[in-house]
């Protein structure tokens, strides 16, 4: 565990909690893509199946359980508890366009052709693009609430910090995992445009809105 990874995990946790609190306190999931949240729930479920087979550490187990629990709670709030506020007309990204090709890719490019390993690989590939329905929704409506922008920033920052962690681990331990690194790079690049808008607009007190 190095500082980059710890900061990455904290940033990830913060993102998840910001989103949960935003929905809970405003009693509304307006502007939030339920499809991205379903994809994240799928990411955590397929990645953390090793909870059942391997114990790594108390920290590891706790964080995995929190991530899974929070992601299902978020999906439940969007599709059940606060369903009336869910903006489904703007959440039109087709999930199968991501899930099917990624399932095929994880069968073809993986470290080991074993069920848990393929599911882990699937989760890594899927996570890299799971935010697309949310970004698509923001670009479709042309704006995002400030709190939603904070969520997206924390979520993007998490993978950028993991990239730093992998650079650190490569030099400190000679460890690298090409699948995670390439997918992490793709994931971080997808957020770059958003990072630019966040820094130039949201941090200056303006709402995130896209030029018409």
């Amino acid at each position: 565990m190095n500082l980059f990874r710890l900061a990455g995990d904290v940033s990830h946790l913060l993102a998840i909690i910001i989103l949960l609190l935003k929905i809970w306190r405003t009693r509304s999931c307006a502007g939030i893509s339920g499809k991205s949240q379903i994809l994240f729930a799928l990411v955590f479920t397929t990645r953390y199946l090793d909870l059942l087979t391997t114990f790594i550490s108390f920290y590891n187990t706790t964080m995995k359980v929190i991530y899974i629990g929070c992601s299902y709670a978020t999906v439940w709030m969007i599709y059940a508890k606060f369903k009336a506020t869910y903006d489904s007309n703007h959440d039109t990204f087709r999930m199968e366009f991501l899930v099917i090709p990624i399932a095929a890719l994880s069968l073809l490019v993986n470290h080991d052709f074993a069920p848990l390993e393929i599911l882990w690989t699937f989760s890594i590939y899927l996570e890299s693009v799971a935010i697309l329905p949310q970004l698509f929704m923001v670009s479709k409506t042309g704006e995002a609430e400030t709190i939603t922008s904070h969520y997206l920033f924390a979520l993007g920052l998490y993978r950028a910090l993991y990239l730093m962690n992998w650079i650190w681990r490569f030099f400190a331990e000679g460890f690298f995992d090409l699948i995670a690194i390439v997918a992490g790079l793709v994931q971080t690049i997808l957020y770059c445009d958003f990072f630019y808008l966040y820094i130039t607009k949201v941090l200056k007190g303006k709402k995130l809105s896209l030029p018409a």
């Binding site: 391997t54 790594i56 995995k64 390993e117 882990w120 460890f175 995992d177 995670a180």
Partner: peptide
């Protein structure tokens, strides 16, 4: 080995 060490990350 690489396959097992990577699962220590979240």
């Amino acid at each position: 080995d690489a396959i097992h060490t990577k699962h220590d990350e979240l």
